[in-house]
Each structure stands twice: as C-alpha cells, then as structure tokens.
Amino acid sequence: MVRIKLAWWKILTIILLYYTVVGGLLLPVPKLHILNETIRMNYFHVPMWFSMIFLFTYSVWSSFKYLKTQDIKYDDNAIESVKVAFVFGGLGLVTGMLWGNATWGTFWTSDPKLNNTAIGLLIYSAYFILRSSLEDETQRGRLAAVYNIFSYTVFIPLIYILPRMTDSLHPGNGNNPTFRLFDTSHNMKLVVYTAIIAFIMLGWWLFTLLLRLRVLKKYQNETF
C-alpha cells in the first residue's frame, strides 16, 4: 500500500477548515434582530467569493503567461483554476440564496448583486463553451486566454462596481451594515479571517488535484 504524505499546507488547510466549521457553528455570535443565527452563514458565504476571485485572478495571470510564452502548461493552469473558481462562485450563490430565504423571505430577488453575479457566471460558462468548440490545442489556448482576460475586465466592474451604484438589499450596499474591518465583533472576525484563508487554500488544493488529473490524462492519451 502506498502511504501518501500530505504537504504541510494541506494539513494546515484541514486544521483551519476544522476550526472554521466548529467555530463557525458553535462560537458565540452577536444576537441581532431578524438575522439571529443566520449570521453564521457569513462564515461560509464570504470566503466563497474571496476564493473565487483569487482563482479567477490566478487564471487571468496564467492566461497572460500563456500568451507571453506559448507554454501549454499555463493554459492548463488557466482552465483548471477557472473550473474551481466557477464551483466556488456557484456555492457562493447557493449559500447567499439560503441566507436570503431565511432573512428576506425569498431565494431570489431583483437585487443587482445577485443578478450581476449570475451574469458573471454566465460569462464563464461561455468560456467553457468556447473551449469545447475549438479543436486545435494551441489555437484553443490562445483564444481562450484572450477571452479569459477580456471577460475578467468585464466581470470585475459587473460584480464590484455596478452593484455599489444602486440601492441594494445586500449587506454592504445601500447603507446596510456588513462585515467591515472594525465593527464586527472580535470572535466573528477571527472565524471569518480563518475561513477566508482556509477556503482559499482549499480552492488551491482542489486546483492542484484537477491539474494533476489533467496532466495525467494527457500523458495517458500520448502513451496509448
């Protein structure tokens, strides 16, 4: 039997995630009207977006590198990180919807933050479709890289700038209180920061796994 030794940062990820889950569900939270215990969703909802943005940014960086060097390994990096980021974006939407159902009374509203995020995820679905409709490897890499960089420049204003310009139900917009640096209670801050770091690391871990799978598959196709 092969013993697999985990790298130190993977063990750290497990510990941090453990702390996030246990601390997130058990540590005391401020008692607020309407929010009540749903405030705990904050621990899982916010890190999703941080993780997503981290991976999208990484994939854009890889796309830049690919255009510069034409090395196919950067293209692999880009597609796999977009995949993981997409999953995190979907989870972010789902956790947000659960929270919205508990506090706003509905899963989906006409809120700009929700709708723009949905559009953002549509942009990345188009990225997958673009990739699947191109055959040649180098051409696919180049066009996908161009589209990835281009869509990122649209994606960022769509989810970070435009929603801030209108009134919104979402915490942090339209004078609603939110997770801020200084007005969150100490315990919450601790867990939220841990959760952010833990989920970014988890995202990176998933990304390395997918990347390894992709490279191995390619290797398999070449040898047989």
Partner: peptide, 10 residues
C-alpha cells in the same frame, strides 16, 4: 451570441 451577450450586459 454565447460569447457576446453576457459580456455586453454591463
């Protein structure tokens, strides 16, 4: 159509 619609929504 697939590529352009989401991009120009903003």
């Amino acid at each position: 159509a697939v590529l352009s619609f989401p991009v120009i929504i903003s």
